[in-house]
Design a protein around this nucleic acid. Structure first.
Lengths: 237, 237
DNA sequence: CTAGCTCAGTTGGTTAGAGCAGCTGACTCT
DNA sequence: AGAGTCAGCTGCTCTAACCAACTGAGCTAG
């Protein structure tokens, strides 16, 4: 009765006061009085809001309006995918296909109208990728940055965040499940091709480049498919 | 210290036991013993997991593994958008553009390869839409069904759910903010055009049809725009 | 006088125990 | 045999106390 209401009322409080991300919320005792509920109930509501990223709780410091990032979505997606995988579904493949479907459309849309500054940055990223591949380092972070920078040209923060969330969820699940790493050199070449294709303004070519890139990941995926060990100890889910 | 851990351990428990959606979780006393934590901490962890859709709690009945739907994402997206809107950002427009960017790509990808059965169903949906428009009824649900059915041909459940989540979030925010409704007849015509374009197999035409549809919504949106000045500093309640 | 430390006060974190509320199924009375 | 009742599970809420992290004022040592 009260619980669901409490969350709504706290959300309403944030909206009514026009609180921005990072703004302080009332303390627990203050919320108790304002909402007429016990500490326990208030805390449970806050915990739920925290899980949704609406609120941020800092021990010994206070409660604040959260960053409203899509982190909870990553969390949920990742768990959903891992759970499905353990139960023998091809959930990880579905997640990959989701990225592929969305990114192919966006890349072709982006072809030829990507800002010059972003192209320069992308060039630098692929260079770094090659350097990392040469000395055998992991290039996950650079790959992430590449995709993030690529779609920045679409000039929609929300869209960028969603794509990054998909990337994060996929990457986390794949590493958690101990997926086989890609061949770094192939990965580099494909990113270079994506970049060149987008630069050239040829939508079809850009689409094809993205598709090939994902096709590569997909191939690696199916070799590691559904053998299911117990969860490892330090696993993040 | 314990709280974040508890959530992880409960998630681990679900994975280790290969619990499917709907499967019962241990009762609160059992979890207390199994996790070595107090009732309160266990409940707070469960509340957070519930907010993420990982767990479902039914009063007087028990706790179960959740449906793993994207409902929490809708919740989060909607709140984020409303909060941004109230603070004078064009967050609702961004959400619309997110849908547009993704759907244009998918529609062109879908053109010509959509199953016959889905085409029949889509025809029926547009018919119903026209019938509803004629008698002045709302056609939100039919619109939702149209978009859902359209992308079903991509044969990726996750993708479908994500698109539906975007639709839901957008629709909820728009109605919450009392947005101006569309002209039903225009909406019908545009859906018919999308359908015909996809049927014809012409990717460009499909893309254009989607873009025009969203352009219409966008136009309605800007008439209801926030027009709230940016109050970055010193904002009063 | 300043740099650093200490400690009291504030905030959230955790535990405990009691009682309330919704649901189920077996028991009882008709 | 059927309908009503109640005992027992379940989760929900509250109170009250104490633990732990952080801040900042005030003290101490240099």
């Amino acid at each position: 009765m009260a619980a669901r209401d409490l969350q709504e009322r706290i959300k309403k409080l944030i909206l009514d006061r026009r609180l921005a991300s990072g703004a302080p919320l009332p303390t627990e005792p203050e919320l108790m009085e304002h909402l007429g509920a016990s500490r326990n109930s208030v805390r449970e509501a806050l915990k739920a809001l925290q899980a949704m990223g609406i609120v941020e709780i800092r021990h010994g410091f206070g409660t604040y309006v959260g960053p409203m990032s899509l982190a909870p979505m990553i969390e949920g997606l990742a768990f959903r995918t891992v759970a499905g995988h353990y139960r023998g579904e091809d959930s990880l493949l579905q997640l990959l296909e989701l990225r592929e479907a969305v990114e192919t459309g966006l890349a072709s849309r982006l072809a030829g109208r990507i800002p010059q500054a972003d192209l320069v940055e992308l060039d630098a990223l692929v260079d770094r990728m090659e350097e990392q591949a040469a000395r055998g380092a992991g290039l996950a972070e650079t790959d992430r940055a590449f995709h993030a920078t690529l779609y920045r040209g679409l000039d929609n923060v929300l869209l960028s965040e969603v794509l990054e969330a998909f990337w994060d969820a996929f990457h986390r699940v794949r590493t958690d499940l101990g997926g086989e790493p890609q061949d770094p050199k192939v990965t580099c070449r494909q990113h270079r091709e994506i970049l060149d294709a987008v630069r050239s303004g040829d939508s079809m070519r850009a689409e094809e480049a993205i598709r090939e890139h994902f096709g590569n990941i997909r191939a690696r995926l199916s070799t590691t498919a559904p053998q299911v060990p117990h969860t490892r100890h330090n696993e993040r889910v």
